[in-house]
Amino acid sequence: MDGAILCLPDDDWQRGGVQPAMMPASTDALIRLKTLSKHYGSHTVLDGIDLDVRSGEVLAIIGPSGSGKSTLLRCINYLEPPDGGTITIGSMTIDAARPVARAELSGLRRRVGMVFQSFNLFPHMSVLRNVSLAQERVLGRGRAEAEERSMQLLKRVGLADKATQFPVRCSGGQQQRIAIARSLALDPEIMLFDEPTSALDPELGLEVLAVMRELAETGMTMIVVTHEMGFAENVSDTVMIMADGHIVEKGPSKEIMRNPQQERTKRFLRAVHDR
């Protein structure tokens, strides 16, 4: 029963809705980025990123600060509009070179959930309201239905008893779990995590990682920017290393973490292990 709450919505949109001509022959990529680029003035943050993420895949993005990991994540749901390239999610393609219609943007954001480093819960609303607001306003659910669903999800992340509290009364780890529930409440197909444990002390980080691990096991497609090497190696299917706006290396997580090929990856992992 728990699995049913977290599992992906029916995935027939991926198969039925896609025109065959647009469907890549070789993969069943749910997300496909093509030559995605982003500049701040003359500074290139993302330099033509090509990336496929399969449905159900958990991708960990690691790399030094300023490598463009977070920007990449934020470009995927257009919190940062990319300057060039395309983002394809299922049957929907957004071309960054032209202006994006509001309907496209809301379509994109309905499919993609996001969890922030600093949680960003709404401090003036109860925990329950945090989780149910967007269900009512974005999905058009009735209040009773939204609250029922919220309670299910809060139970799922172990925080049903916090429903009537305000976020400020919750620990950082609890707030992040509420933020995950808030995102899941919109039934996203993809979850983006932007350093979800970086603002937490190690113990509180663990409870968040446990929720993420469980989510991964239900088959959610996840892209996780992280400094948690344990998560990258053990939970994610694929690890990608970024540096200077490029993908340095990408492959099955155990392979990359244990036997990296690129010198830049080796250097980064050595620095992490030496700490």
Binding site: R102, S106, R109, F116, S118, N120, F122, R137, V138, R182
Partner: peptide
């Protein structure tokens, strides 16, 4: 109001009025 609040609202798909 903290910038993250606006980002969270946008990421949740709330329209500008909401």
């Amino acid at each position: 109001v903290a910038h993250g609040q606006r980002e969270a609202a946008e990421a949740l798909g709330l329209n500008r009025f909401d």
